[in-house]
Amino acid sequence: MQYPTPISKLIDGFMKLPGVGPKTASRLAFYVLDMKEDDVLEFAKSLVNAKRELTYCSVCHHITDVDPCRICEDKERDQSVVCVVQDAKDVIAMEKMREYGGLYHVLHGAISPMDGVGPEDINIPDLIKRLQDDQIQEVIIATNPTIEGEATAMYISRLIKPTGIKVTRIAHGLPIGGDLEYADEVTLSKAMEGRREL
């Protein structure tokens, strides 16, 4: 049996979201039909407002509703340190930690030759321009511990080191509560590399 056109379009819309297949999309569409009309209108308004009112910071490329973003504008933050992350969600994760007080630079991706993504396709050129500011003394590379993330970290490190700016990489290894026996070789290797004195 074919769904009426409005619900078919709604299902198709939900299926455009990552990780949402036909069954989940159908479930969400029928859930929306059961919602109060005011709630549906508020939800739709939130979607439209997020798309229209959010932009990327002209300095760090983090998602924001003001430009430059509040982090870049905060003079209380350490202006000498920049943490390079792959995605805006990574900035949110770092900020939840409440231990880092420097600035950020969001790449919006990682180098991936297999997918046709090179350094010029992500915000590496903007990072290099930013580092011409004599105030920046350290770049912390916090890309994901994947092949693409590691390649991106190495590429950035090789670009920056000749400038004399300190380049560091966040440690990777075993999570709290993890068991050694279930860790893969790469994770164990990174855990050994990132060890520190107690």
Rank of each mutant, 00 (worst) to 15 (best):
residue 105 H to A: 05
residue 113 P to N: 12
residue 29 A to S: 11
residue 116 G to I: 05
residue 165 I to L: 03
residue 4 P to D: 11
residue 51 K to V: 08
residue 78 D to L: 11
residue 99 E to R: 14
residue 90 D to R: 07
residue 148 E to W: 03
residue 154 M to G: 00
residue 188 L to R: 09
residue 24 T to C: 03
residue 129 K to T: 02
residue 8 S to K: 15
residue 80 S to M: 01
residue 166 K to G: 00
residue 123 N to E: 09
residue 69 C to K: 02
residue 81 V to I: 15
residue 5 T to E: 15
residue 117 V to K: 02
residue 146 T to V: 03
residue 153 A to M: 12
residue 162 P to T: 11
residue 2 Q to K: 12
residue 46 S to Y: 05
residue 22 P to S: 13
residue 1 M to D: 11
residue 37 E to N: 11
residue 179 D to Q: 14
residue 41 L to E: 14
residue 185 E to I: 08
residue 194 G to Y: 07
residue 181 E to V: 08
residue 26 S to A: 10
residue 4 P to T: 03
residue 136 I to H: 00
residue 174 L to S: 08
residue 41 L to V: 11
residue 88 A to R: 02
residue 171 A to S: 15
residue 5 T to R: 14
residue 66 V to Y: 04
residue 101 G to D: 11
residue 5 T to N: 10
residue 73 E to H: 03
residue 6 P to Y: 08
residue 127 L to Q: 05
residue 79 Q to T: 06
residue 8 S to C: 00
residue 53 E to G: 13
residue 169 R to T: 07
residue 13 G to C: 12
residue 198 L to Y: 14
residue 69 C to R: 02
residue 114 M to L: 15
residue 119 P to L: 03
residue 111 I to F: 05
residue 10 L to D: 01
residue 171 A to R: 05
residue 196 R to G: 08
residue 100 Y to M: 08
residue 63 I to M: 09
